[in-house]
Each structure stands twice: as C-alpha cells, then as structure tokens.
C-alpha cells in the first residue's frame, strides 16, 4: 500500500501562499493562525482552482478533505496534518462519513493524502480525556490488526515490535502518539480489525443520539470495550493468548493498558445498547474478522463481564 510522503513543518511554511488554502479544526485554529499565514477556508468555499489544501484536524475533517479532493478536485495537492491521533486518517485510503448515525465507509487509493506533516505542539491542545481515548483507538487498531485471522507472520512481527514501543509510551498527550497511531493504522490496514470495531461502528450512532452531551465517539467506544473484548478473545481455544506469546508480546502489559483505558461507567451506559444491537454487531464486517468467532450466545459474556 502506498503511503503519503512525510514532509516537515518548515516545508509546509514554505508553500506558496497565493494558491494554498487551510482547512482548520476550530479547536486548533488559534495556534495555527499564529504560525501559518495561509488563507483559511472551508470545504464549501474551496474551489477546484486551489492548487493545494492543507487540512489540519481530526479524522472527520481529514476524511472530508480526502473525499472532496478525490471526488471534486483530483488535481489539488492535499497535505494532511492530524490534530489528534487514533483514526490514522492521514495515512489511510479509507474515508468514513457519518450520515444520520450510519457509517458510510469507502476505500480507494484516491483518498490518500499526498503528504503528511506531524506537528507535535498540536498534542498540547488536546483535552486530556480525548487524548486518552484516542490512545485507546490506536491500541485497538494495533491489537486487532495483530490478532486478525488475515494477518501473516511478517505483519504480526511488525505489529509486535510496534506494541512494545506503544507500551513504553504513556497514555495521554505525548506527541509520540501521532506516529505510533499512524503506524498502528497502517499495519492494521494490511489485515483487519475485529469485535471492538464492530461494536464501535454499530453503537456510535445510537449513543450519540441518546446522549448528545456525553461525547460518545469511535475512540471512546474502542477504549471502553477493548478490555472486555480482550477478555472474551482470551477464552475459547486460547488462540489469542498463543499468538501474543508466540510473538513475544507482553500480554500482562497489554491487559493492564486495556484496563487503564476502560471506563466502567461508559461501559454500563453502553451495555443496553450492546444488547439491543447485538444482531447488527454480529453482522458487522469487522466483527466477522475477529480472532475468535463471535456467536449470538456470546452476548451473555458481555452482560456478565465486570472489570477486575
């Protein structure tokens, strides 16, 4: 899979101003405008004559830019600057659109940005709780990518090494997570994800609708369900435990991280939605590539699971 070329922040500043526009997440606009002197625009106002768009934001804005460029202005150069980690949108050929609670997922190399810039100072602007759940998103990509039935030996070795670096990076606002997350997403794209993502994709819409003030999103769901899903995967024929041991992954360290990420209150809130949407979760394409087969009767495990 091709990847966007990484360029430096200085390279970004040297771009010609007359033909470059910025799309900026509001949460980082003040910082951005202090150091970058490009015209700030937005998706509806950018024209096809724009030679270069620099998009600085989270996965949603990055995906909007990727889709706009591919569908409406293929000749425009697109430079992605993630303001938060987790989605891997800056290095992914996947675009996720959320329409009325339904995720529309498209995959095409046309969606890949041309270049990516990592701006470490943006990590300072991320609220602490969002930074942690974004780490949970990254961890879910790494672990599910590693355990995927579609992963081969080379990929598992690659992700095992990545996991060891992730274990040495504290959860929270470390800018090291920008690149760790990109690596995790890039590696997982070569295999698949699993039940954590099947749950997150299915429940995000209903939870957001029911609790609009609780900031339910993909990362929060991944963080809340990683521990119980890892516990579920560890049962059955024990394949996930064998894989972790075979590739030298520190299982205790991984489970400790999953417990740290787990939000028991969020889990209790989400559980009725898990029950109501279990059949939909079973049918989700991510669930169907889980390391352990997920059966209708396995709902009982999650109803009974309590964090240790």
């Amino acid at each position: 899979m091709t990847k966007p070329v990484e360029i430096s922040f200085d390279d970004l500043r040297r771009l010609p101003k007359e033909s470059t526009e910025l799309w900026v997440q509001p949460s980082v606009r003040q910082r951005v405008e202090q150091v970058l002197r490009f015209r700030v625009s937005e998706p509806k106002k950018t024209t096809r004559e724009t030679k270069c768009v620099i998009v600085i934001g989270g996965g949603t804005l990055l995906d909007a830019a990727k889709a706009w460029r591919a569908d409406q202005s293929p000749a425009t150069r697109l430079i992605a600057v993630p303001s938060i980690w987790g989605s891997g949108a800056e290095v992914s050929p996947i675009v996720v659109a959320n329409d009325l609670g339904q995720k529309d997922i498209r995959m095409d190399d046309r969606f890949l940005p041309d270049q990516v810039v990592y701006w470490p100072e943006l990590a300072d602007d991320i609220p602490g709780d969002l930074a942690r759940t974004a780490c949970g998103d990254s961890w879910s990509h790494a672990l599910e990518g590693f355990l995927s039935p579609l992963a081969d030996d080379a990929l598992r070795n690659e992700i095992a090494e990545l996991i060891s670096r992730m274990l040495n990076t504290p959860l929270g606002n470390s800018p090291r997570w920008f690149k760790l997350s990109a690596e995790a997403c890039g590696a997982q794209a070569c295999s698949s994800v699993g039940l954590v993502h099947g749950i997150a994709h299915t429940l995000e819409g209903p939870l957001r609708t029911s609790f609009p003030d609780q900031r339910w999103g993909h990362a929060k769901l991944c963080s809340s369900f990683l521990a119980p899903v890892m516990a579920f995967n560890g049962q059955g024929d024990g394949k996930s435990n064998r894989l972790l041991a075979q590739y030298g992954v520190d299982k205790k360290g991984v489970l400790k991280i999953a417990r740290e990420l787990h939000d028991a209150s969020a889990y209790r809130t989400a559980l009725p939605f898990l029950i109501d949407n279990w059949r939909t979760i079973l049918r989700d394409q991510c669930t169907r590539t889980n390391v352990r087969l997920v059966r209708p009767s396995d709902l009982e495990f999650f109803e009974r699971w309590i964090a240790e």
């Binding site: 039935p149 698949s192 024929d237 394949k239 394409q285 087969l293």
Partner: peptide, 16 residues
C-alpha cells in the same frame, strides 16, 4: 451473509 468476511468467520469457527 456468505461473503468474503463470512468465509473468514467460517474458517475461524472451523478451527475453533
């Protein structure tokens, strides 16, 4: 539901 992902799930289930 017998698509490529269904095939993966089936293979996992057969092994288990």
């Amino acid at each position: 539901t017998w698509d490529s992902m269904g095939l993966v799930a089936m293979a996992v289930g057969i092994e288990e």
